[in-house]
């Protein structure tokens, strides 16, 4: 499949006399193939929005290469802008205009037929409220309007930064359906979101960024599989047998974590080997359940942003690829 979005070695450095240098993007790579719904994930301050702004010509990069729809950007942005719909960060509109006026003015600036305004208003569910001023809208309604503005061009590539932010549960489901429908119609969608359950449901592939670098990428299934730890939960018929089982499994090279009524095993390639091993010791398994990883756990593991009781993680304390693997502000923080 051809790449619709390509980023290689993207760098953006902010310099401040007082606070030193901060690498917002530190050689970031990304690739999105045509027709996919692609999730773009990262902790706060990891460089997601900077990436999108740079890609869309709002921020000047310090290095690297970017291409949209096969054209090098930012040089070719005027050529491809008509085929890229985007919302970046929170939706921002002139508060005293109505939704219809807002879209109509954008359509005028982009030479989009006026009839398209009604189509997108219908699509995002704002048809009946389109005559009201934007300042009266809830966050969710503004979000819908932002999505409508991005869809106005009927783009080939749709870039949405936190599109589900502020939406009610029904709205989130509608947004999910809309994304899938758009992808099925041939549109490529890039979604930045923190609702990882949604990303796992909607997206074909993901890129995870941490401290300005890519830490994982690829189809969702592959990313999950790569970071599956082979964890298995087992229960025995008799709870009193758990210490004996722990000893037997440990001797077999399996990492075991004991719990009052069950054991958690890690690094198990074949669960059947566990039942055979325990049966040989006359220990009988009443439950054996492989623990499936989800995107949230992979994200927390890769970015090292899982909450730790008693600690208050700071924004820049997350995983940097090629680093020590421990959370900490190493590299990229102010003063680095």
């Amino acid at each position: 499949m051809p790449a619709v979005l390509e980023i290689e070695g993207l760098r953006k450095t902010y310099k401040s006399r007082r606070r030193g240098t901060r690498n917002a993007l530190d050689g970031f790579d990304m690739r999105v193939d045509a027709g996919q719904v692609h999730g773009f994930l990262g902790p706060n301050g990891s460089g997601k929005t900077t990436t999108l702004r740079t890609l869309l010509g709002l921020i000047r990069p310090d290095g690297g290469r970017m291409a949209l729809l096969g054209h090098e950007v930012p040089d070719a942005l005027p050529t491809v802008a008509g085929q890229v719909g985007a919302i970046v960060e929170s939706p921002q509109f002139f508060p005293h205009f109505t939704a219809r006026d807002t879209l109509s003015l954008l359509a005028g600036a982009g030479e989009v037929p006026a009839v398209r305004v009604d189509e997108v208003l219908e699509l995002v569910g704002l048809r009946d409220r389109s005559g009201e001023r934007v300042k009266t809208y809830s966050l969710g309604m503004k979000q819908r309007l932002a999505v409508a503005s991005a869809l106005l061009k009927n783009p080939k590539l749709l870039i949405l930064d936190e599109p589900a932010n502020g939406l009610d549960p029904g709205g989130i489901r509608e947004m999910r359906t809309l994304m899938r429908t758009l992808a099925e119609s041939g549109m490529t969608v890039v979604l930045s979101s923190h609702i990882l359950g949604e990303i796992q449901l909607i997206c074909d592939s993901v890129t995870i960024i941490s401290l300005g670098r890519r830490v994982a990428f690829g189809p969702v299934d592959e990313v999950l599989a790569q970071h599956s730890s082979g964890a298995v939960r087992i229960r025995l018929e008799a709870v009193s047998d758990l210490p004996v089982a722990t000893e037997a499994l440990t001797q077999a090279g399996i990492r075991v974590t004991g719990h009052p009524d069950h054991l958690m095993l890690a690094g198990v390639d074949k669960p059947a080997s566990v039942t055979r091993l325990l049966a040989e010791k006359n220990l009988y398994v009443s439950e054996l359940a492989p623990i499936a990883v989800d995107l949230e756990s992979v994200f927390l593991e890769l970015t090292a942003t899982a909450p730790v009781p008693g600690q208050h993680r700071q924004v820049d304390e997350s995983m940097k690829v090629g680093g020590t693997g421990q959370p900490g502000p190493a590299g990229g923080g102010w003063g680095a």
């Binding site: 869309l56 010509g57 709002l58 930012p74 942005l77 005027p78 802008a81 890229v84 985007a86 970046v88 921002q92 509109f93 002139f94 508060p95 954008l106 600036a109 982009g110 503005s149 061009k153």
Partner: peptide, 15 residues
């Protein structure tokens, strides 16, 4: 336009 983000929106359309 600058303070409400309208300029940014416009530049996404006309870069």
């Amino acid at each position: 336009e600058w303070s409400t983000g309208g300029m940014m929106n416009l530049l996404l359309w006309r870069p």
